[in-house]
Computed example of a mutant assay.
Amino acid sequence: MRAAFFTGQNLPLEISEIKKPKPVKDQVLIRLHYAALNHRDLWIQQDSVPQQPVILGSDGCGVIEDVGEEADPLLVGAEVVINPSLFWGNNPIVQGDTFKILGYPDAGTFSDYVCISKKQIFEKPEHLSLEESAAVPLAGLTAYRALFSKARLRAKEKVLITGIGGGAALWAMQFAVAYQARVYVTSSSNEKIEKAKALGAIQGFNYTDPEWTQQALKEAGGFDIVIDSAGGPQFSKLFDLMMPGGRIAIFGRTAGNIPDIPTRLLYWKQISIHGTTMGTRDEFLSMLDLLESRNLKPVIDQVYSLEQINQAFERMKTANQFGKIVLKIK
């Protein structure tokens, strides 16, 4: 089988032929049809030094081809999507010490096949294609937990989603719109803002404009919730935009560390900041239920073949994407 290996920091992924894995115990062997990229995969390539070559990739959808001795043989032939949140633990509030995300250090989905516990598979949503289903797992789960479990979204609340265009930000926007929130977005691209408005956002603000926060206050009057995946110097500006009792959920660091927080605004407005990562099995199931009940579909930016995986990552590096970057494997 083919697999794309991460062999060293800032090196292109190498596609090699390896032996197909065999499922054991409660594992299933999935013939992957599609996988999808996440910024996590890019950060691993930029920040990590692997001890040995490893197959990256957290998102995948395909068909079960074989099962281990503790898995039901009737699963063979099922179209499934993979939950990449592994070994969360028993506390829904925070992941345990054994928590991992599929695709590093364990072998991930940038390959023809993957073996994984039957506990991590869910039936593909009926209204989604295999390609669309591959664009759901990591970003959809992250957005769901941030918006509902952490920020506790209520209908009609005003929500600001920063850096629209990536998978998790778009899922957060689609979930919030479906939940009848009043949704606003930020981007450095006016084109992305217009695309977001076409999907249900009320308005967007270009954060390269020094006046964007004043524009946002004039337009919206303040926000109950901010979903942020950037951090960095812009983060401190969010506090001026928050309504009293507002909630900020953050799950990324694309703009780097947060240099300062206006402490007085934090306590006087009684603002809550929630860090969040991935989510539980129950949240994954609830996220899939939301997709099906509201007939939601992912936004897909471009589709590449497995052999074009390094081109796909170059696309991600440009930050021009609007939606998920998907790999066609079969």
Rank of each mutant, 00 (worst) to 15 (best):
T98P: 00
A255H: 11
A312V: 06
K156V: 12
L130Q: 10
V49Y: 14
L37P: 06
A178S: 14
G103I: 00
F251W: 11
G256A: 07
M173R: 05
Q52S: 15
A196Q: 08
C115R: 00
D224E: 13
S58P: 06
M242E: 02
T280M: 09
F322Y: 15
P73F: 07
E69R: 03
S111R: 02
Q180I: 08
F235L: 08
G108Q: 02
A169R: 02
F87N: 15
I82H: 10
T162M: 11
D209R: 09
I325W: 03
P259K: 10
R281H: 14
D97L: 10
T162S: 13
A178M: 12
E126A: 15
V24S: 12
N320F: 10
P23G: 08
L285N: 11
K124N: 04
V54E: 11
A216H: 01
G279N: 10
Q215P: 07
I227Q: 07
S58M: 03
N10R: 15
A172Q: 09
L241P: 03
D289F: 09
V80R: 02
L290C: 14
L138I: 00
K150I: 00
T98I: 04
Q46R: 14
L170V: 08
K156L: 14
P259N: 13
I271W: 01
N190D: 15
T208Y: 11
L327Y: 04
I202P: 07
G96Q: 06
H33K: 13
T162P: 07
L265C: 04
L199K: 11
P84G: 07
F122A: 14
G279Y: 06
P53Y: 05
A169K: 04
E283K: 02
L138N: 06
V67M: 01
I258G: 11
V226C: 11
Q234G: 09
P233V: 12
I161G: 05
D41N: 12
